[in-house]
Simulated scan of single mutants.
Amino acid sequence: MKLFVQIPCLNEEGTLPLVLDTIPRRIEGVDEVEILVIDDGSTDRTAEVARERGVTHVISHSRTMGLARSFRDGVDYALAHGADIVVNTDGDNQYKQEYIGELVAPLVRHEADIAIADRQTAQIEHFSWFKKRMQHLGSQVVNYAAGTALPDAASGFRAYSKYALVRLNVVTQFSYCMETIIQAGNKRLRIVSVPIRTNPKTRESRLFSNIFQHMAKSAQAITRSYLMFKPHVVLGSMAAAFGVIGLIPFLRFGVLWLMDADGGHIQSLLFGTLMLVGALLSIALLVIADLQRTNRVLLEETLERIKGIEYGRTDAPGPGGDRGEDEEPRP
């Protein structure tokens, strides 16, 4: 079994050596441990430092492409070089790399397809009260969209099996964290959480300038991913709401007409008509979204077969075999 530890980096020459020096080279159940550094358009010596430390797998972007693209390029590279498990960590030394063995253990035992580190954010000292609450709220929203129960959905310290990576497709430009959980949950992949401790803060995040920007971009990624898998929930609710609101003015108009009340109350009819048109448009969009969803499922099945040919066979680990996204999860 081959494990790739991939490290997306943007100007991390100062902290990258700390990360590389603490990555375990021997892990129970793993035959080979390889390290992959993705230099996302760094302007410092990140790539040179990686090579000086003995890293033979380095991907360099000519310009900054973003975390999601770096993750995707790293996964493609790792799978092409025979990876059975890919661990994603950060180059800022936020995570304690000695936990990698615990993180991959459920995958090695074929008990999970994805393992996500739980940073136990409520106990992180440099997190403000507001940030802790927002982290908790964000995890709850992601869990609702994915049908999971993860305490730290925003954690970037993760282990993915080859089977999971072949089934996941990152399309967002911001961060893969939320999107891959929602995809994995709706595709019935097995996800576990592994509690860890983090290192002291080394720098401010380069992924976003402030927490409000992070919240806005995360909300956009969550909404987009949720609509991909459950458009009927959003659009169906909108159609029902518009329909009920639209019927009320018509009922009111009918009651007043039967009572021979003065005035035509045409405004109520216009408002009701507008709401009913909104309901019909929501239903039309729902039909289109459902057709697109069906087409996406077929395209993803084709893409999985192509990946299987390119990267080798990817059987579903453990009992039960493959589980499609439309099947009910096992209790």
Rank of each mutant, 00 (worst) to 15 (best):
E98Q: 13
T294I: 02
V194W: 09
G272N: 02
K2A: 13
G272F: 01
L298F: 09
T56C: 14
V37R: 03
V86A: 04
Q123C: 06
R26I: 15
T15K: 02
V104D: 10
S209Q: 09
Q6F: 12
V37S: 15
G246P: 04
I309F: 15
G101F: 07
E179F: 06
P319C: 11
R197T: 04
V255T: 08
K131E: 11
D76N: 14
G236V: 03
G272R: 01
L285V: 00
L36N: 05
N169C: 05
L269M: 11
G138P: 02
R45H: 15
L227S: 11
P249C: 13
A240V: 08
A239G: 13
G29K: 14
G14W: 03
Q123R: 08
Q292K: 10
Y95A: 03
L227P: 00
Q140P: 00
Y144K: 05
R330E: 14
D315E: 14
A145Y: 06
T148Q: 00
L79Q: 04
I181N: 00
Q120S: 10
R119N: 12
L256F: 13
G263K: 08
R190I: 06
I191S: 09
P195F: 11
D326V: 07
E301D: 14
A284L: 14
P151H: 11
I23P: 05
F4L: 12
L18P: 00
N295K: 15
T273I: 07
R53M: 13
L16V: 11
V277G: 09
I116R: 11
Q183C: 08
H57P: 00
S282G: 07
G324D: 05
V37N: 11
R25S: 15
L280M: 12
A289L: 06
L165F: 05
H81K: 10
N143T: 01
R51S: 15
E125K: 02
G318H: 05
L10S: 13
D326K: 15
G236M: 04
C9L: 05
R197P: 00
I124Y: 02
F253K: 07
A154N: 11
P200D: 07
V287S: 11
S70Q: 08
R53Y: 14
C9G: 10
Y144C: 13
R51Y: 08
L276Y: 06
S60Y: 02
I100N: 02
K201Q: 14
P195S: 08
I114H: 03
R190E: 06
Q292N: 11
V19I: 07
A261F: 12
G66M: 01
I182N: 03
E102D: 15
P17D: 10
R45Y: 11
V287A: 15
M228S: 13
Q220T: 00
Q97S: 13
D315P: 03
S139V: 01
L165K: 01
